[in-house]
Simulated scan of single mutants.
Amino acid sequence: MRRRWRLERAAAEADVAAAVDVAPILHRLAVLLEAGIAPDRAWEHLAASGDPASRRVHDRRQSGAPLTDAIAAEPGVWHEVAAAWHVATTVGAPLARTLRGMAEALRDAEAARDDIRVALAEPTATARLVAWLPLVAVALALTLGFDVLATLRHPVGAACLVVGALLMVGAHVWTRRLVARARPGGGVPGTSAELLAIALSGGVSIGRAEEVLASVDVSPADADRDVLDLSTSAGVPAVDLLRATAELERHRARIEGRMRAAHLTSRLLLPLGVCTLPAFLLIGVAPMLLSTTTSASVTL
């Protein structure tokens, strides 16, 4: 169970690290493209500079894979990058500007994840520390000279140990789920609005833009459709409105993440009161009382 939790944390941290590395790569690509370098040649330059992700993309491209498929084969947020690349090249939108916009979106999303991780650090560390409280009580009892291990041969002592261990496991699972719910999800908030803005910046119609998004398994959100309706009724371009909507969604994701982290502090009191403290009494206090009672009975 602990191993599974660590694997999940490692996967989440790997996605975060990938997001941190992607934004500079996209910015460099945008600079190379603005200088008039062809896309394949730009990837080759980045691969030659020693960037591992660019090298893998270039190797897949050399093996005959389409460029968008070569990009999408990378883990984490590279899928969103591949979708943006496909949309831009399909509708003829400026690719360099698209990459700059995606780099800014990734930086915003990463800043939001940083805020949430900082807010989660203290309650998560406290929960892990408190989870060891029953075992600390056992160590304290042994230090004070109580024959705790001998009480395990008593039916009541064995029952206390089993129930206390089950409560500790329950507290661990409960805490892990609470923390997992409070952590930020994967992906980049506002992706559909960002991709729709990229498609419309190529000068295509709204219907064609939705078709291109459907080709990368993305459909406009309700907020995106509201923006499109506003653009149509007011007769104004929808691109800037959609990009503003994407920024708003990333801002909301940051605020919601902070709120989840704030609520986590109080929610972690539930496994503490329901599981950890009873386990402390059963594993730490009850054996000491039983040891005292047994010693008194033997003396008499």
Rank of each mutant, 00 (worst) to 15 (best):
residue 21 D to N: 09
residue 194 E to F: 01
residue 229 D to C: 05
residue 119 A to K: 14
residue 119 A to F: 08
residue 6 R to D: 08
residue 26 L to Y: 02
residue 241 L to N: 03
residue 60 R to P: 03
residue 165 A to S: 15
residue 123 P to C: 11
residue 10 A to T: 10
residue 69 D to K: 10
residue 75 P to Q: 02
residue 73 A to W: 06
residue 244 A to Q: 14
residue 167 L to W: 03
residue 27 H to E: 06
residue 223 A to R: 07
residue 112 A to E: 13
residue 37 I to W: 09
residue 131 A to Q: 11
residue 297 S to F: 07
residue 248 L to E: 13
residue 219 S to C: 04
residue 1 M to Q: 04
residue 243 R to T: 10
residue 54 S to L: 06
residue 162 V to R: 09
residue 274 V to A: 14
residue 250 R to M: 05
residue 53 A to Q: 10
residue 246 A to N: 11
residue 175 T to Q: 08
residue 175 T to I: 02
residue 76 G to A: 15
residue 177 R to D: 12
residue 119 A to M: 10
residue 101 G to F: 01
residue 22 V to L: 15
residue 162 V to K: 11
residue 61 R to G: 13
residue 229 D to H: 11
residue 176 R to K: 02
residue 231 S to E: 09
residue 108 D to H: 11
residue 239 V to K: 05
residue 268 L to C: 10
residue 295 S to M: 13
residue 76 G to V: 01
residue 226 D to I: 06
residue 168 M to N: 02
residue 63 S to T: 07
residue 24 P to L: 09
residue 74 E to S: 02
residue 19 A to D: 13
residue 80 E to W: 09
residue 17 A to G: 11
residue 160 C to F: 07
residue 214 A to W: 01
residue 83 A to S: 15
residue 278 P to K: 05
residue 98 T to G: 12
residue 46 L to P: 00
residue 133 L to T: 10
residue 90 T to R: 14
residue 230 L to N: 08
residue 54 S to W: 01
residue 5 W to M: 13
residue 274 V to F: 11
residue 203 G to V: 07
residue 255 I to V: 15
residue 33 L to K: 08
residue 284 G to N: 11
residue 103 A to P: 09
residue 95 L to A: 01
residue 174 W to A: 14
residue 170 G to R: 07
residue 205 S to R: 08
residue 264 L to G: 14
residue 127 A to Q: 01
residue 234 A to W: 00
residue 263 H to T: 12
residue 295 S to C: 01
residue 199 A to M: 14
residue 107 R to H: 10
residue 240 D to S: 13
residue 143 T to G: 14
residue 289 L to N: 07
residue 121 A to E: 13
residue 78 W to H: 03
residue 183 R to Q: 15
residue 182 A to R: 03
residue 242 L to K: 05
residue 90 T to E: 10
residue 218 V to K: 00
residue 257 G to V: 15
residue 18 A to V: 03
residue 166 L to M: 06
residue 25 I to G: 10
residue 187 G to Q: 11
residue 15 D to A: 12
residue 46 L to V: 08
residue 93 A to V: 06
residue 142 L to F: 12
residue 77 V to Q: 04
residue 267 R to F: 12
residue 269 L to S: 14
residue 283 I to P: 11
residue 210 E to G: 01
residue 256 E to Q: 08
residue 58 H to Y: 09
residue 1 M to E: 07
residue 18 A to K: 04
residue 137 A to H: 03
residue 43 W to M: 15
residue 203 G to N: 11
residue 269 L to R: 08
residue 219 S to Y: 04
residue 144 L to F: 10
residue 151 T to E: 05
residue 94 P to T: 01
residue 232 T to S: 10
residue 70 A to K: 06
residue 44 E to T: 06
residue 271 P to Q: 13
residue 211 E to P: 00
residue 49 S to T: 14
residue 137 A to P: 12
residue 108 D to F: 06
residue 232 T to N: 02
residue 239 V to N: 05
residue 289 L to D: 07
residue 90 T to W: 00
residue 235 G to L: 08
residue 44 E to I: 00
